[in-house]
Nucleic acid binder design. Structure first.
Length: 104
DNA sequence: AAACTGACTTCTC
DNA sequence: GGAGAAGCCAGTT
């Protein structure tokens, strides 16, 4: 399976109210260290509503780009889902997704 | 096929 | 914790 497909698939599995970091996503997709590449896939996000790319943030919880209306929109959506924010940064210690399949 | 790009991460100061 | 620099990966040109 392609890297992109895998990334999108995993992104679609992110539960509501949780977020993951690019590095985490890369690792889960079987390509540890490809955080950057993950970001590129999100940028070319084929289907915004079907692929919740707004649940993907930086390693520190910092919100990065969002092709579906801007960071403000992204933040709003996350907050609406129950994600805890600390100013403009996501509180990873509370909202980071810790999937069981992450055991590598 | 080579070079450039980017929604990243980590180290040091 | 913030600013600057280097490293890493896949995709696009």
């Amino acid at each position: 399976m392609n890297f992109k497909e895998t990334v999108y698939k995993i992104t679609r599995l992110i539960p509501k109210g949780s977020v993951v970091t690019y590095g985490q996503l890369a690792k889960m997709s079987g390509h540890p260290g490809a955080a950057r590449a993950v970001g590129m896939c999100m940028r070319n996000n084929p289907d915004i509503p079907a692929t919740p790319c707004h649940r993907v943030v930086g390693s520190t919880g910092q919100l990065t780009g969002y092709a579906g209306g801007g960071l403000l929109k992204k933040k709003s959506m996350l907050q609406d889902e129950g994600v805890v924010f600390k100013k403009d940064i996501v509180d990873l210690s509370i909202s980071q997704w810790l999937p069981s399949i992450m055991e590598i």
